[in-house]
């Protein structure tokens, strides 16, 4: 019984998805090709949440900051008009460097707020968004001069909302093409995601991975046996931030357009919800949870507005339903997990 319990949540969402697909009255092919896009766009974010959970820090809502690092890198690339594979790799390099720096800062802050990591990481996410807006809405044109005037607003201060990155969208075209639903897609992004997943798997088996799990299991004991717990927690956050920045680059590559001020906004919530849908808890999460979660959660995401339109003649209802799902899943997970935590203490 105990063993099957953790499959309850994914099963529940599987049933919901099936009802949604039927209710929406869409073809399986449509769902598949949409799902491919969403898997490519969101897969790495969900994986990025795994390591902080292992370290006992809960869900790292500050993965938003990694996404912002990716935006910054892409803006620099666009400003200097370096496109193609070279630009893509350079973007990854810049965003990784930025993420390492930012990850260290976030880790430092979260170490100061032990026991309140999740709410603190939410506020960090908000604050980082604001500072980012300040930089690109006001900083550009006043302090920083853009080389590429196309990305600037006509008033001369601040960047435009969108930057066209269609060049990157073509990057994987024609490589390892497979047929997904109604469209031809490249397998390359999927391979990248699998490689990232393997990387996380490797890290969890390395020395630092063992320490991360030890710190997550019991921070006091880990400290007592001589592990530098603060350092381990900081490294966990750095890894998470770096992965998130890579995730955001994949996301934007797939869309081919960067919405400077909005693209990062809900990724933390949706990724967290997806992971939890996959059967993860706040203390325990693995790669399987991540993959199952992404597929189930995004299936629902695709079909619920359509189902709302179809069943209630109201597309908005489906939309409300899915945002309720995202937040509701998280609340539900909190209630289940944290109660368990307080019970096991007795």
């Amino acid at each position: 019984m105990e063993k099957y319990k953790r499959y309850l949540v994914p099963l529940f969402f599987l049933v919901l998805s099936i009802i949604g697909i039927i209710g929406a009255g869409v073809s399986m092919n449509f769902v598949l090709s949409e799902l491919y896009a969403r898997f490519v766009r969101n897969g790495i974010f969900v994986i990025a949440l795994l390591i902080p959970i292992m370290a006992g820090m809960g869900i790292n809502f500050a993965i938003k900051v990694g996404a912002l690092a990716a935006h910054t890198a892409l803006i620099i690339i666009a400003d200097n008009q370096i496109y193609g594979l070279k630009g893509f790799l350079l973007a990854i390099l810049i965003s990784t460097v930025l993420s390492v720096i930012l990850g260290n800062i976030i880790g430092y802050i979260l170490n100061k707020a032990k026991g309140k990591e999740m709410i603190t990481s939410i506020v960090i996410g908000f604050l980082a968004t604001n500072l980012y807006q300040l930089l690109f809405m006001v900083g550009y044109g006043t302090i920083i001069k853009a080389k590429n005037s196309e990305i600037m607003l006509s008033r001369g201060i601040g960047l435009r909302n969108n930057i066209d990155l269609a060049e990157f969208k073509k990057l994987f075209d024609g490589i390892l093409t497979i047929r997904v639903g109604d469209t031809n897609e490249s397998l390359a992004p999927v391979i990248i995601i699998v490689v990232v997943a393997l990387l996380v798997y490797y890290i969890s088996g390395s020395r630092i991975g063992h320490h991360i799990k030890a710190v997550g299991g019991n921070i006091n004991t880990s400290q007592a046996v001589g592990i530098d717990t603060n350092r381990v927690r900081r490294i966990a956050i750095v890894i998470s931030t770096v992965l998130a920045s890579l995730g955001q680059i994949m996301y934007i590559q797939n869309i081919g357009m960067l919405n400077i001020y909005t693209d990062h906004l809900n990724i933390d919530i949706f990724s967290a919800a997806a992971l939890l849908v996959g059967g993860a808890t706040l203390k325990n999460a693995n790669i399987r949870n991540a993959f199952i979660g992404v597929l189930l959660f995004h299936t629902l995401f695709i079909v619920s507005p359509l189902a709302g339109q179809n069943l209630f003649k109201h597309a908005a209802l489906g939309e409300y339903f899915r945002s309720f799902l995202a937040y509701g899943t998280i609340v539900f997970a909190f209630i289940m997990n944290l109660r368990y935590e307080s019970e096991s203490k007795l």
Binding site: H210, K213, A214, G216, G217, N218, T221, S222, A224, V225
Partner: peptide, 11 residues
């Protein structure tokens, strides 16, 4: 006990 329950004996 200063042991970590989630890890195995060897770890």
């Amino acid at each position: 006990f200063a042991l970590i329950g989630d890890l195995n004996i060897a770890s």
